[in-house]
Design a protein around this nucleic acid. Structure first.
Length: 424
RNA sequence: AGAGAGGUGGCCGAGUGGUCGAAGGCGCACGCCUGGAAAGUGUGUAUACGGCAACGUAUCGAGGGUUCGAAUCCCUUCCUCUCUGCCA
């Protein structure tokens, strides 16, 4: 959520930013925000004056009672009663303006970073980096869902039986490879200074609002009605919400966490051939990195996250590229997002396996995550996160790119974690 | 799930109708002391909104109510803890 005073003072900049996202009716909604804000402030001034008068009267009444001047007190009581009626009305309209303001603010996405280009869809994303060579596969190379069947390492039908489509069952070496990847990623992140953490896989409504999944995007999450909890779509939600409402010390920065969790996504509305196999699932595993940073350092931190993810992909020897998402493709809460895509050779497709974002103070404003700055004032912190990495597509790329006539070779760096070097 | 206790500032913790935005402690900041530090000692130190400011208003889990006046009394609700039950 953007801060009202920021919008008030940087209206044109906000409009320009929203234009890069192709955000509809930006000017209308921004004007509505400014109107609601002005009404709210005006009403508050009136209300404050009425309440100040009322407080003054109460004190006088108290004094009259003490000194035994009951008649004077009774007179003032009447006046006070009338004042109360009036202030109640004003309080109601103040609340209405505040609610309206809040409702509007929730609808406005983050202002993109200056380097983010305008654009409508993924077609407008900019490729900014590419590394690794695409392997040349044999004539009999097959996509990962066929490999999964051939070597009996992932059973999609079995998952459908016990849960539904998009809930695969990993078996034998397939399961072990999953576990190896999780451990490898966590070790890698821990070595880079991130503190490993295990968090709940269900979150309450306040957490969903804190990181921006709620309101409006309920449909993307599984909801447990009985207890009003949501299954997490990413570890970002519980990890970032650790800091909801917190006032941290400046010396606590940088705050860095990594955690493995399963992720649950309803993926309502996505279907078709591109969701085959591991490409898009309702439940998948992911290792996440989250940072809470001083505003001055957040872009340096983002850069560090990008370099860190590069390093992982280099070790896995997977060909990858990095995209800077255009305005229209950047998530609601992010100011900038870098997507990492690996090449899944047998499918002849790039698959998104990580996305690293700086939310600046957009989430922090919802979370009320602040720190004391040098002047002793509290200031919103910056939050960032990135995947390191999402497992299914990494697995898909490994299976496809490392396939040989004799089986699937295991990337060298994973062999110690797997305990085997080939799936055959 | 049943019974009980409780939710107060960055943290701990007093406070049962006006003198309470709130004692005391810890922490933190600045000063004194010291060769330097620790200890000791003095002062300061909640947040949000509005206002150039003086200042005003609100906030003691949340929402309602009683009252001229509520941290304090009443109702509703959420959460936490303890015991019992169930269970990995």
């Amino acid at each position: 959520m953007l801060q009202v005073h920021f919008i008030r003072e940087n209206k044109q900049m906000v409009l320009d930013g929203l234009a890069k996202r192709n955000f509809a009716n930006a000017e209308t909604i921004v004007d509505q925000v400014l109107t609601a804000d002005e009404n709210r402030r005006k009403t508050q001034v009136f209300l404050d004056e009425a309440l100040a008068e009322s407080n003054k009267l109460s004190k006088e009444i108290g004094n009259f009672f003490k000194s035994g001047e009951k008649q004077k007190a009774t007179l003032l009581k009447e006046k006070s009663g009338q004042l109360k009626e009036k202030s109640k009305e004003m309080a109601v309209s103040l609340q209405a303006f505040s609610d309206e303001l809040q409702r509007l603010l929730y609808q406005i996405p983050n202002v993109p970073h200056a380097s983010v280009k305008a654009g409508n869809s993924e077609a407008d994303n900019e490729e900014i980096y590419k590394e690794g060579s695409i392997p040349v596969l044999g004539e009999n190379a097959i996509p990962h869902w066929e490999l999964a069947k051939k070597y009996d390492i992932i059973d999609f039908e079995l998952g459908t039986k016990i849960a539904g489509a998009g809930f695969p069952v990993y078996k034998g070496k397939g399961a072990r490879l999953q576990r190896a990847l999780i451990n490898y990623f966590l070790d890698k992140n821990t070595k880079a200074g991130y503190t490993e953490i295990q968090v709940p896989h269900l979150v309450n409504e306040a957490s969903g609002i804190g990181t921006g999944q709620l309101p409006d995007k309920e449909g993307q999450m599984y909801h447990v009605g009985e207890d009003d909890l949501y299954l997490i779509p990413t570890a970002e939600v519980p990890i970032t919400n650790i800091f909801r409402g917190n006032l941290v010390q400046e010396s606590d920065f940088p705050i860095t966490y990594t955690g493995y969790t399963p992720c649950f996504r309803r993926e309502a509305g996505s279907y078709g051939s591109h969701v085959r196999g591991l490409n898009r699932l309702h439940q998948f595993d992911k290792v996440e990195i989250v940072r809470v940073e001083h505003p001055e350092n957040s872009y340096q931190a983002l850069n560090g996250m990008v370099e860190h993810i590069k390093d992982i992909l280099r070790e896995l020897k997977l060909p990858y590229k990095i995209l800077r998402l255009c305005g229209g493709d950047t998530g609601f809460t992010a100011a900038i997002t870098f997507d990492f895509e690996v090449f899944s050779t047998a499918q002849d497709r790039w698959l998104e396996i990580s996305s690293a974002s700086n939310f600046e103070n957009f989430q922090a404003n919802r979370l009320k995550l602040r720190f004391k700055n040098k002047e002793g004032k509290s200031e919103l912190a910056h939050t960032l996160n990135g995947s390191s990495l999402a497992l299914p597509r990494v697995l898909a790329a490994i299976l496809e790119n490392y396939q040989t006539e004799d089986g699937i070779q295991i990337p060298e760096v994973l062999i110690p974690y797997c305990g085997f070097d080939v799936i055959n």
